[in-house]
Design a binder for these strands. Structure first.
Lengths: 268, 268
DNA sequence: GGACAGCGTTCCGACTATTCGAACGATTGC
DNA sequence: GCAATCGTTCGAATAGTCGGAACGCTGTCC
């Protein structure tokens, strides 16, 4: 949860920019169409002030006004930003071909994610190449967010965080039960992260949703920092835990290690 | 090219927001790492002013500072925006399953795009389901942009624009030759758009790149406005023009019509 | 090793863009 | 036809913003 209160009141901070972006991100979830008054209420500003920001955003192409309802929605210009963010990631560029090969070799869906606070953000995704395969699709795509504590990708990334960063991340976690085996306490998560770090990979056995298993491995850059993680997602009825860890895990770890090597990582 | 000069100086416009977003979008292409001075030069502002915006953006998570180089890069928060834009598109939501079915049925890559100025922006993409298939991948993904005049998707969208909008769009086109058959004059493009509108679909026969053929059909909403377009992309060595237009074109048009119907479109 | 140029950052007073309330025209529901 | 709500415009008081100057730092060049 990011505080919406005043950040700094002194110099070195732009109130207008913060408010403009606040308005822009109000379009995130839920209703994609918002009016000036509606926005004013959610961000706590007068209608006239909101209108100024909205007009600016519309002029620049970040918002579009619906001619009938007079309400606003996000414009194509916003896409630019999102995708330049993704494309400016070196990891993703380097990893892409390896992930595709991994997906082709195993026949399962492969995902890559980074950590942002307590969330993971998908930055690459190769769907299972076998069509008829039972689909475990939680409507995930590049850019989707999931809580870190109940995903294999998230646990691997949390496990390799420095102590202070890990503490900070764990502080903000809301341990909601989401699947049969969700980890629901900080204590249990800490033990799990310790195990993950020792093993070098993380397993998710129906912690996020019923029927969903996955295994994830970290990707290190040349600073030996875990900048991303890759996983293989399977349906629990198709792959046993043993098979997941032993057979698929080995293939996955090899792929992850290749990517790390390309990023200049040298194992100790 | 979007003018960077003053927009309005009166009321109803936020200078700070424009400048903040200008800085944010300076990270778009090219170097993903930018410093304060560098930014100041590109956007024409003093270092101190730029620093205020950059600090604000970093606090909010839209930028991240590299600890070593002190330079800035885009943060994960920017991803949110881009993907909420994509996900808030009703067309995309409705079309997704149809596109997947179209891709599975034909075995070819299916794309959906919208028009933004003279560019098309990919908003959905289903890769060819047959692996061994010869890949014609210009490193395209959701969010990618291509000039409209040399793509089937773009021509279909331009063809169904209202007269004033079409004029405005054509004015800005830079007719660069990009493939063996690129249309290189406004006159020729106008004739082609007329044909596209009559036929109800557009064909791209190596106008964008050597070896690349595609056929695109428009998607109409309940206002009978072409809000998006779908295409099938093939390699010229795999599919003849006749086959593309007759066999694949028919399947494509049916899929596009289904999506249009779901959006409430009623053919005249 | 000292001078220099470049960087990111901070500070400050002058300034101007931004603020909200009030008012307008259009639309909607009763 | 009235009342409520919408998006929008206007204005004067305000407060957030502006860029020059200065700081500490890191490299490079004699």
């Amino acid at each position: 949860m990011v505080g919406t209160e005043a950040r700094e009141s002194g110099t070195g901070y732009s109130q207008s920019l913060e408010r403009g972006l606040l308005i822009l991100s109000a379009f995130r979830s839920g209703q994609p169409q918002l009016g000036v008054s509606e926005l004013g209420r959610t961000v706590g500003l007068s209608r006239s002030t909101v209108h100024r920001y909205v007009a600016t955003l519309a002029t620049l192409g970040y918002l579009q006004q619906d001619e009938e309802t007079k309400k606003y929605r996000l414009g194509p210009r916003v896409l630019d930003l999102g995708f330049s963010a993704i494309n400016s990631m070196e990891v993703r560029e380097v990893a892409a071909p390896h992930l595709r090969r991994l997906s082709d070799a195993t026949g399962f869906t492969v995902n890559m994610a980074i950590l942002d606070g307590n969330d993971i953000v998908y930055v690459e995704r190769c769907r299972s190449t076998r069509p008829g395969q039972r689909e475990i699709d939680l409507n995930l795509h590049v850019g989707s967010r999931l809580p870190a504590y109940c995903t294999s990708l998230g646990k691997v990334l949390l496990a390799h965080l420095s102590q202070p960063l890990q503490d900070a991340a764990l502080d903000g976690i809301d341990f909601t039960r989401r699947g049969p085996n969700t980890i629901t306490s900080r204590r249990a998560l800490l033990a799990e992260l310790e195990r993950v770090r020792r093993q070098g990979f993380a397993v998710n056995n129906e912690e996020l949703a019923y029927g969903l298993r996955s295994i994830a491995a970290p990707i290190f850059d040349f600073h030996a920092e875990a900048v991303a993680a890759v996983n293989l997602a399977v349906h629990s009825s198709m792959v046993s835990m043993q098979d997941l860890v032993a057979r698929l895990g080995e293939t996955l770890r090899r792929a992850a290690a290749e990517v790390s090597a390309h990023l200049g990582y040298q194992p100790a």
